[in-house]
């Protein structure tokens, strides 16, 4: 205890002194990871979050953005509860970072797992994933209004497919039900790819897939986007209107960020922030975000923390209206 205290203080003093003396751009230049960096993923292998985290890892490796290798570790149990607990048990660690998604807020709200995300150290938000309402290309529905009419006609038997209950897709569905006063049958599936396939196969009537999950089918002319839940139209679908421009307050994002444990040393935070900033400027990342209609909205530090807390409050509200809160 004493040992780690003095070491950390010593490092901090040295860093401050150096920064003051030589007016270095950041303390990051002095601190380098001493061992492989563990990248904890809040989801299991093979899902969207996992694929994205491994994409980050490969870009870091390829562009040599870190002096030590990055090791992805999946801790997806309990909608990420496992990863959240793990991070909160490793306070002060400088070699563990976590890739987050929206279960970063929803999991601690839905179940009391003894984790307060306010304590974690925000590092960088890499992107915001978007949501779009999809129907099968064989369907007659062309617009949001027609969709609403069709759902009302179905009288509660309209099948909306999505990821697990309490996860992002079900929240968007709840928002739709709320806005248009609808009664939808929500069918949960294991992952976004599974959902997309079931829409194209005609087993469900509509989905709110991320564009990346439907892109393959969309390009093949098998699915049709109706409306995007973004403030502005997506570059990938210039003809698809947004709900906001039609006068409905329906905006929902999936955030893809990195956080560190509580009390992560400031030098390490600076190091990772710089690493991710460089990553966000690489060509691979720029192409990927453009192809998959992701908004590459880079955000760090206190602003990111403020964003997290605001989103948490918003999610608590949606979950409460769904009757999903833990208390």
């Amino acid at each position: 205890m004493f040992h780690s205290f003095t070491r950390r203080t010593g490092l901090a003093i040295a860093a401050t002194a150096l920064a003051a003396m030589a007016a270095m751009p950041a303390a990051a230049a002095d601190w380098k990871p001493q061992k492989p960096i563990e990248m904890v993923i809040m989801a299991g292998q093979g899902g969207g979050a996992d694929r994205l985290a491994r994409l980050f890892q490969s870009i870091i490796q390829k562009e040599n953005l870190a002096s030590m290798p990055v090791l992805p570790v999946n801790k997806g149990g309990g909608s990420g509860a496992e990863a959240l607990r793990y991070l909160s048990d490793n306070a002060g660690e400088a070699h563990k970072i976590m890739a987050t998604l929206n279960s970063y807020y929803t999991t601690p709200i839905r179940n009391d797992i003894g984790v307060d995300i306010e304590e974690f150290t925000p590092i960088a938000r890499m992107a915001l994933d978007t949501f779009v309402l999809w129907v099968n290309a064989d369907s007659d529905i062309q617009t949001l209004d027609e969709w609403v009419a069709a759902v009302k006609d179905a009288g509660g038997t309209w099948k909306m497919g999505g990821t697990g209950t309490g996860q992002e897709d079900s929240l968007v569905t709840a928002m739709l039900e709320d806005t248009f006063d609808l009664d939808i049958t929500y069918v949960p599936f294991k992952g976004g790819g599974d959902v997309a396939k079931n829409l194209v196969g005609g087993h469900i009537d509509s989905t709110v897939n991320n564009p990346s999950e439907q892109m393959g089918f969309y390009n093949a002319g098998k699915s049709r986007p109706l409306v995007a839940f973004t403030p502005e139209r997506l570059a990938a679908f210039p003809d698809v209107p947004t709900a906001s421009e039609m006068g409905y307050d329906l905006v929902y994002w999936m955030q893809r960020s990195f956080v560190g444990p509580k009390e992560m040393p400031a030098e390490a935070v600076a190091y990772y922030t710089e690493m991710f900033e460089k990553l966000s400027q690489t060509e691979e990342w720029q192409t990927y975000t453009a192809d998959k209609a992701l908004m590459a909205d880079f955000l760090t530090g206190d602003e990111l923390q403020a964003y997290f807390l605001e989103e948490r409050a918003k999610h608590a509200e949606i979950l409460n209206s769904m009757g999903e809160g833990s208390s």
Binding site: Q45, D50, L55, N219, K222
Partner: peptide, 18 residues
């Protein structure tokens, strides 16, 4: 799923058009 992730990394889009 991992193979799929790899293909995405190399800029290949698996799907009906591949």
């Amino acid at each position: 799923a991992l193979l799929l992730g790899g293909m995405v990394m190399w800029g290949l889009m698996p799907g009906p058009m591949l």
